[in-house]
Design a protein around this nucleic acid. Structure first.
Lengths: 211, 211
DNA sequence: CGTACCCTTTATCATAAGATGGACGTACCA
DNA sequence: TGGTACGTCCATCTTATGATAAAGGGTACG
């Protein structure tokens, strides 16, 4: 190897095929080189500590430790870490949490090759890079009313898990009526009219995930 | 190029990064070569006609035309086409429909590199290749009771779309009571007790999709 | 210091959803 | 041909869900 002065890149993705693709793409450029790879969130954190790469490409959905949490752990020790989120998920909540965690760019995996390479160079030089489509999603989130309270998110998770209002009340040690009130507030904030719609929009927006 | 006698492979995936990765992986092998790439279902069909590759790697979720439909179109003209499904979705319905369409192998994108290469060689030599984890999912589908009827699937889609029983009745020009009867049957077949659970399990199993 | 504001909690009332039982037709098999 | 299994359809009864109003508790801010 040894490209003198090249941008050293850490690739974190749980799909070997994707890692391969990113590595091939990067190594073909004279000004970039792959410093290391990681197949999970914990590996990503460990590899970052060991290698201190110039730029990190991070998937969001990974085993053991999600991308957002991994970014948080990395930036706790290396506040200047330059991390690019590269994922298939375009839910506005995913985008928000990713950037909130300290990512400098957010790209979707269906982005063209050049867009990725440009983003790597931009982030390496200290800039941020948010494609218009992603920015639009982020703006949507801002517009879409107040955030769900912690309690409401807890209830929403239970709804997605398929629990009835009575069961949710038992789980959280509150009355069934209280659960209904929370749900009513959730429906209002999500702009939907029943729990089924709440489930689909919460999944689409990335507020909760299946499995 | 020109690897004499090499396995000629068509890559169909809407993510440029994944195509890059598969291409890099394949080109590194002396007995394989990339015949072409496609970024959508219609492209995949067109490229297959033009190139008649030995083996095709096909993603399921693609714009314009899904992978299953693309396989169907290809095999209508080339019944001997050797197609490998390579996707991130592990819902039992996705697997069933993919193999039903005529795929010779079904791999998940988090599969190790060697597993993919072995599958390519196996399929090229006329075999099929179903990893144990995938086979288990498929078996689950067999066990999990009778299929939903066309009408029930129609109703299920409406449920996922967030429509009320009354609205579904209006949409399908049947009474609300009939809708309830269909839903009751759906709940029984899916092994759940309300429409919210029906939505999540239908999504998990890949019977319906969001968006 | 108090006064908003929001989260959390509750009860009551109207409506939608699920359970049950059964009718009709059709495709399939003995 | 006779049965039988299944999909489609409908009405009635019970239960869960959603709408509404409103009170207590914490906190930020003037």
């Amino acid at each position: 190897m040894s490209k003198e002065g090249a941008i050293r890149i850490l690739i974190a993705d749980d799909h070997p095929v994707v890692r391969e693709g990113l590595a091939a793409l990067v190594e073909r450029r004279p000004d970039m080189t792959v410093a290391g790879e990681a197949g999970s969130g914990v590996e990503a954190v460990a590899q970052f500590r060991r290698l201190t790469p110039d730029v990190t490409l991070m998937d969001l959905r990974m085993p053991e430790l999600g991308g957002v949490a991994a970014i948080g752990q990395i930036r706790a020790d290396f506040p200047a870490a330059r991390i690019i989120i590269l994922t298939t998920y375009d839910g506005d909540e995913d985008i928000y949490r990713g950037l909130q965690a300290g990512a400098r760019a957010y790209l979707l995996k269906d982005a063209p090759r050049d867009e990725l390479l440009d983003a790597i160079r931009a982030v390496h030089s200290g800039q941020t890079r948010i494609p218009p489509a992603v920015a639009a999603r982020l703006a949507e989130r801002m517009m879409s009313g107040p955030d769900l309270s912690p309690r409401e998110i807890e209830v929403l998770r239970s709804i997605v898990a398929g629990r009835s209002n009575r069961q949710i009340g038992a789980d959280l040690a509150i009355s069934e009526g209280t659960v209904k009130a929370h749900i009513n507030s959730i429906l209002g904030k999500l702009g939907v009219s029943d729990r089924t719609q709440a489930v689909t929009t919460a999944l689409q927006r990335g507020i909760v995930h299946l499995e």
